[in-house]
Amino acid sequence: MILKAPWEIDLMRKSSRIVAETLGKLTEMINPGLTTMELDRFAEAYILRRGGKPAFKGYRGYPYTLCVSVNEQVVHGFPSTRRLEYGDIISLDLGVVVDGYYGDAAVTVPVGKVSDEARRLIAATQGALSRAISAVRPGNHLSDISHAVQSTIEGQGFSVVRLFVGHGIGRSLHEEPQIPNFGPPAQGPVLKPGLVLAIEPMANAGGSDVMILDDRWTAVTCDRSLSAHFEHTVALTEDGAQVLTSYTEDESAQGTGR
């Protein structure tokens, strides 16, 4: 595990703040008829205007600023001319780098009124992220985060995506350790102040199996059931867990005991 000094975490707050602001703007834009490419173009322009750089564009050959995944798409979906439809759900995954340090977050948003299943799936996945963040405490084990995700999602009758994992983050977009979204508690490395993690539960309404499409990026559920994805960049400090990509003040203090 790569531990960060307090000054490094402060630098990560800059990139993470731009991530949070951009996702907030994008969420406000979501409406039937909007194309996913319009979301990507807005995100890139906004990030550059705020002094950041899109972290995903060019990363391992990925060609866009956003990962935009709709309905049965799990993660890494390409922006396109596809227009959102009433009742869709859309996952937006975004990374930003500022001064050599990264922030990364994701959110799943309903397009208008969605089915009860979709609403419950979104709530369960977001709840799993919240419980996982609460497990980020000195002395806990890495697998306590994984177990929090799995128990929350499966407890609501949904399945956990096992192919993709959360990860450490800092001077690189992906650092050790990897964080599976499943597993028993009290195993693996002990969590220490200075650790910064990108925690990202992904849940499917149907089975857990996913497949990669011919574009070599877009992952979809094998049974074409709905999928949801949430993510935050979380720093473990001497004062507790701090959500660097928080959308609200209350969320940023989650896990600190305040």
Rank of each mutant, 00 (worst) to 15 (best):
Val160Cys: 02
Tyr64His: 14
Ala105Phe: 06
Leu3Ile: 14
Ala118Tyr: 12
His147Pro: 02
Lys25Pro: 01
Ala5Gly: 02
Leu213Gly: 10
Ala43Pro: 09
Gly207Met: 08
Met29Val: 03
Thr81Asn: 02
Pro185Gly: 04
Lys57Cys: 07
Pro201Leu: 12
Leu236Lys: 10
Phe42Trp: 01
Ala106Ser: 15
Ala128Met: 03
Glu175Leu: 07
Ile199Ala: 01
Tyr102Pro: 01
Lys25Arg: 14
Ser246Phe: 01
Gly257Cys: 09
Pro138His: 04
Ser80Thr: 11
Gly206Val: 14
Gly112Pro: 10
Val75His: 12
Gly52Asp: 04
Ser227Asp: 12
Gln187Ala: 14
Gly157Lys: 13
Phe158Gln: 01
Glu44Ser: 15
Tyr86Gln: 14
Ala253Asn: 11
Ser15Ile: 08
Tyr101His: 10
Gly100Thr: 13
Ile145Asp: 06
Ala118Pro: 11
Phe182Asp: 03
Phe182Ser: 00
Leu197Phe: 11
Asp214Ile: 11
Leu26Lys: 09
Pro6Met: 08
Glu251Ala: 10
Met202Ile: 12
Met12Thr: 12
Lys14Leu: 02
Gly168Ile: 04
Tyr64Trp: 13
Gly157Asp: 05
Cys222Glu: 07
Phe164Val: 08
Lys113Leu: 08
Glu28Ile: 00
Gln73Gly: 00
Ser80Asp: 05
Ser134Asp: 11
Ala45Val: 07
Gly155Tyr: 07
Val109Arg: 10
Ile179Asn: 00
Phe164Ile: 11
Gln126Met: 05
Asn181Gln: 15
Glu44Asp: 05
Ser146Phe: 02
Ser246His: 05
Ser16Gly: 12
Ser15Asn: 13
Ala205Val: 13
Pro180Ile: 05
Pro185Lys: 08
Pro193Lys: 09
Thr256Phe: 04
Thr256Gly: 14
Thr248Trp: 01
Thr152Val: 15
Thr108Pro: 02
Glu154Ile: 11
Thr22Trp: 05
Glu249Asp: 00
Met37His: 10
His147Gly: 02
Asp99His: 07
Ile133Asp: 04
Leu244Pro: 08
Gly87Tyr: 12
Lys113Ile: 15
Met12Lys: 11
Phe42Ala: 03
Val19Gly: 05
